[in-house]
Amino acid sequence: MQPIHWSPEFETGIDIIDSQHKRIFDYLQEVDAAIKQRDDLKIRAVAKALIDYSISHNAFEESLMEQANYPVLKAHAKVHEAFRRRAVSYDQRLENGEDSIKVAKEVRSDIGLWLTNHIQRDDKHYVPYVKKTLEGNFVRRMVKHFFA
């Protein structure tokens, strides 16, 4: 598997989003490491954490877009929903006892490719709208709401 690493090309310029994206990249590397160790429990735990974190990140992103009155929010949310359904299916496969290495490789590949493409293509489009809202101190209220 080709390593997937964070690089400046993925920066949106929105600190909280960039830090969440970086965390997803970290999870992708943790999945790689767990697969190399062939540790079934670790593979399942890290893959599940990657799935859960990615889904919650997308929900947070949508809340920022909603507050920014992003005009393409519904279309963006549909892309997130399709991703969520795929991610949940991986989680269910792991819960059903399917080969953890096989599923983790698929999770890592699918989420890694999806993330890199999604950031560069879809996420960069909402940035100006969200940045304008953030100037009004919105992010502090959202962080307080989601992480308090």
Rank of each mutant, 00 (worst) to 15 (best):
M1W: 03
Q2W: 13
Q2P: 13
Q2C: 13
I4W: 05
I4D: 04
P8L: 09
P8S: 03
P8H: 07
E9I: 10
E9V: 13
F10C: 03
D15P: 02
I17Q: 14
Q20W: 05
Q20R: 08
Q20F: 07
Q20Y: 04
H21P: 00
H21V: 02
R23L: 02
R23F: 08
I24A: 03
F25M: 03
D26A: 04
D26Y: 06
Y27V: 05
Y27K: 09
L28K: 07
Q29L: 01
Q29N: 08
E30C: 00
D32L: 05
A33H: 12
I35M: 09
Q37V: 08
Q37M: 11
R38W: 04
D39I: 03
L41D: 13
K42N: 10
K42P: 01
K42E: 12
K42A: 07
R44W: 08
A45M: 10
A45D: 14
V46A: 04
A47M: 01
L50Q: 04
I51Y: 03
D52A: 11
Y53E: 05
S56T: 13
N58L: 14
A59P: 08
E61H: 07
E62F: 00
S63I: 13
L64F: 01
M65Q: 14
M65K: 05
E66P: 06
Q67W: 06
A68Q: 06
Y70A: 01
Y70G: 05
P71S: 08
P71G: 06
V72L: 13
L73I: 11
K74M: 10
K74Q: 11
A75V: 05
A75I: 09
A75N: 12
V79H: 09
H80K: 01
E81F: 12
E81Y: 10
A82Y: 12
R86N: 11
R86M: 15
R86Y: 08
A87E: 07
V88R: 13
V88Q: 15
S89T: 11
S89W: 02
D91K: 15
Q92W: 09
L94D: 04
L94V: 01
L94W: 04
E98I: 08
E98K: 05
D99M: 00
D99P: 06
I101L: 09
K102L: 14
K102H: 13
K102Y: 14
V103E: 01
V103C: 00
V103F: 07
A104T: 06
A104W: 05
K105M: 12
K105I: 06
K105V: 12
E106S: 12
E106K: 14
R108H: 03
D110W: 15
I111V: 08
G112P: 10
G112A: 03
W114I: 06
L115N: 06
L115K: 02
T116M: 07
N117G: 14
N117L: 08
Q120G: 13
D122Y: 11
D123C: 02
K124A: 01
H125Y: 12
Y126Q: 01
P128S: 02
K131Y: 00
K131V: 04
K132S: 12
L134K: 00
E135N: 10
E135L: 07
G136Q: 11
N137S: 15
N137C: 07
F138G: 11
V139S: 12
V139N: 15
R140W: 13
R141A: 15
R141H: 11
R141I: 14
M142V: 14
K144W: 05
F146L: 12
F147A: 09
A148L: 11
